Amino acid sequence: MYDAANPKPGVSRLHNKIKAQGVQVHYGDTHAIRDVNIEIDDKAVTAFIGPSGCGKSTFLRCLNRMNDTIESCRVQGKIQIDGEDIYDKRVDPVQLRAKVGMVFQKPNPFPKSIYDNVAYGPRIHGLARTKAELDEIVEKSLRRGAIWDEVKDRLNAPGTGLSGGQQQRLCIARAVATQPEVLLMDEPCSALDPIATAQVEELIDELKQNFSVVIVTHSMQQAARVSQKTAFFHLGNLVEFGETSQIFTNPEDSRTESYITGRIG
């Protein structure tokens, strides 16, 4: 089992953004996550891979306390971002989610204009004092979402009128508009066609310059293309974690090798 306290040679310990220790997750009587320890780098892409139901999305949702919204869910252990325990009672989950943005599997633009989709977060968090400042945040976010040139002349059009790939990039722009430090992506390309997927993958590569990006993906090819580190989950356990190239070419655990070669999954 992977041990964060004793990483393998070549696994960087520099610039950790997120540190999880002894994380356990229960849904009622179901033990979904078992004793996960991991350190996630800043300004890099970390991929979570593993079979369906292995716990990767459940663990991802621990990182911005989305599991708090599920009544039967119980999270134990410690998760720190920049050394701060995000499960401390003094931490406001709403403020945490401004710092830790999230993009979901299915594009989910609000039934609002393209402009208002992106302006929503900055408005509720008071990030702009004037309309000009808000305009600037919206433009910058849409540029970061690699969709500005496609929508700049129709900002008042509904976000739901965009294509699937454009909607997902709009949702990424909306997520980065609150100036987060971490961006979580739960299967962000699973509902997209190959061209839109390629655009989002290119965008993920650019986003790592400013954010710590954590992506859950069913596609091992995608993990290999976009991430610097990969974590393999199986039956609620973090089995192996390391440099992506090493995980895919020379895994240490036989379960990782079986998954990558298609024998399990």
Rank of each mutant, 00 (worst) to 15 (best):
Y259C: 07
H218Q: 14
E133A: 14
A191T: 07
S254I: 02
Q76F: 08
A223N: 09
A173M: 11
I215T: 15
R90F: 08
V36W: 07
L238G: 04
I86L: 10
D149Y: 12
L183Y: 09
E201M: 04
H26I: 04
L96G: 00
I81H: 02
K106W: 09
G121Y: 01
A157V: 06
F248M: 02
D41P: 10
H15F: 12
Q179E: 14
G126V: 00
I137P: 02
V94T: 15
Q199S: 14
P7I: 00
G121H: 00
H26N: 15
Q80H: 10
L207K: 09
Y259K: 06
A196I: 06
C171G: 10
Q228C: 02
A20M: 13
E71M: 13
G83K: 13
L235W: 01
A5I: 07
V214K: 05
T217M: 10
V151D: 11
Y87M: 06
C73N: 05
K78M: 13
Q24P: 00
D253E: 15
A98H: 05
I124Y: 02
Q209W: 08
F248V: 02
V176H: 05
T46M: 02
Q21W: 09
V23M: 03
A128V: 02
M185C: 15
S113Q: 13
S219L: 03
L162W: 04
Q209L: 11
P180S: 09
Q80A: 14
V213K: 05
E136F: 08
V176G: 03
P109N: 06
D253F: 03
L127F: 01
L170W: 05
Q228K: 13
N117R: 10
L192T: 05
G165M: 07
S245G: 08
R143F: 07
V36P: 01
Q21A: 13
F211G: 03
E252A: 12
P9Y: 06
S72A: 13
G165A: 13
N210E: 15
E181T: 09
S57I: 04
E136H: 14
K56Q: 06
P93W: 02
V75R: 00
E71I: 13
Q179T: 07
D3S: 15
I195W: 04
K112Y: 15
V11A: 02
P122I: 09
A146V: 09
D186A: 10
S163H: 11
V214P: 07
C189I: 05
Q228N: 13
K89T: 13
Q222W: 06
R74D: 07
L96I: 06
I33H: 01
A44W: 01
F59N: 03
P111I: 11
F48S: 05
G126H: 02
T217V: 09
R144C: 12
M185Y: 11
D253I: 00
Q80E: 15
K78L: 14
P107A: 14
I172K: 08
D68M: 08
V100W: 00
T160W: 04
